[in-house]
Amino acid sequence: MRRVPIVPTIIVTVAIAAMIALGLWQLLERRPQKEAFLAQLAANPTRPAIAFPRFPDEALLFRRTRAFCLEPMSIMRAGAGAAGYRVIALCRTGAEGPGLRVQIGTTRDPVGKVAWGGGRVSGWIAHAPDARPLIATVTQPNAVRELMLVADHPAAGLSRNAPPSIESIPNNHLAYAVQWFLFAAVAAIIYVIALRRRDKRLPEGETTKP
């Protein structure tokens, strides 16, 4: 009877156990946490309005908010799917601080000039467009993202913003768990196949060292 190599088997077993543990973590811990977080976000639109937060806090997503834009420093466009483009102003709010991004409306015009002088603005808290490269969004999915104010009244010449939707917040932890379980199964199958092929290559009656 041919002996199973001990060291490779231990390495593969540990790797498979780690994959299964990661799958259980996604399923039993991360998924319930995300569901509780989404339930909190779903209730945020009904809570009282607050001043726009100075620093990112995702627990405040979809809350009603207000701010004052002293001066728009620049205006940019970002894709908005069927709505065309989101028009976003970067505002100065004081001598210091991170400033404020305000989505002042949507447009289908990719180049037209937008005239907006700032002032008091109200709306909802939402994620600002993610300017990170694709590799960063994959390797750092839980990185803190910048927030912006989505105005409830559009600037002149622009269309009204759609209120931020909780559908924009993914809940992929069940899929992540399934992926880890599949990785574990594939690793086990590949190792079993490798052992069988090794046995076929060995002369009859020969054993390998552990």
Rank of each mutant, 00 (worst) to 15 (best):
residue 92 R to T: 07
residue 122 S to K: 14
residue 101 R to S: 11
residue 44 N to R: 00
residue 6 I to M: 02
residue 125 I to M: 09
residue 143 A to R: 12
residue 160 R to C: 00
residue 148 M to K: 09
residue 33 Q to L: 06
residue 99 G to Y: 10
residue 205 G to V: 06
residue 154 P to N: 05
residue 131 A to W: 04
residue 184 A to W: 13
residue 8 P to Y: 09
residue 187 A to I: 01
residue 106 T to L: 00
residue 108 R to F: 14
residue 152 D to N: 06
residue 97 G to H: 09
residue 24 L to R: 09
residue 188 A to T: 13
residue 152 D to I: 11
residue 42 A to V: 07
residue 53 P to I: 03
residue 8 P to G: 07
residue 199 D to E: 12
residue 170 P to N: 06
residue 27 L to F: 09
residue 66 R to P: 01
residue 28 L to R: 08
residue 148 M to T: 04
residue 169 I to T: 13
residue 99 G to Q: 02
residue 112 G to Q: 12
residue 70 L to Q: 14
residue 114 V to A: 08
residue 1 M to S: 10
residue 164 P to F: 05
residue 178 V to R: 04
residue 82 A to L: 11
residue 89 A to T: 08
residue 209 K to M: 08
residue 42 A to W: 00
residue 167 E to R: 06
residue 156 A to D: 06
residue 169 I to A: 10
residue 55 F to V: 10
residue 76 M to Q: 03
residue 25 W to P: 02
residue 10 I to A: 15
residue 140 Q to Y: 09
residue 112 G to H: 10
residue 95 A to V: 14
residue 208 T to W: 13
residue 81 G to Q: 12
residue 27 L to G: 05
residue 100 L to F: 12
residue 129 P to F: 04
residue 150 V to C: 01
residue 87 V to H: 10
residue 66 R to L: 03
residue 23 G to M: 01
residue 186 V to F: 14
residue 156 A to F: 01
residue 104 I to V: 13
residue 31 R to I: 12
residue 66 R to A: 14
residue 154 P to I: 03
residue 184 A to H: 07
residue 209 K to W: 11
residue 192 V to A: 13
residue 117 G to M: 10
residue 56 P to S: 01
residue 135 I to K: 04
residue 16 I to S: 05
residue 71 E to C: 00
residue 66 R to Q: 15
residue 161 N to S: 03
residue 45 P to L: 10
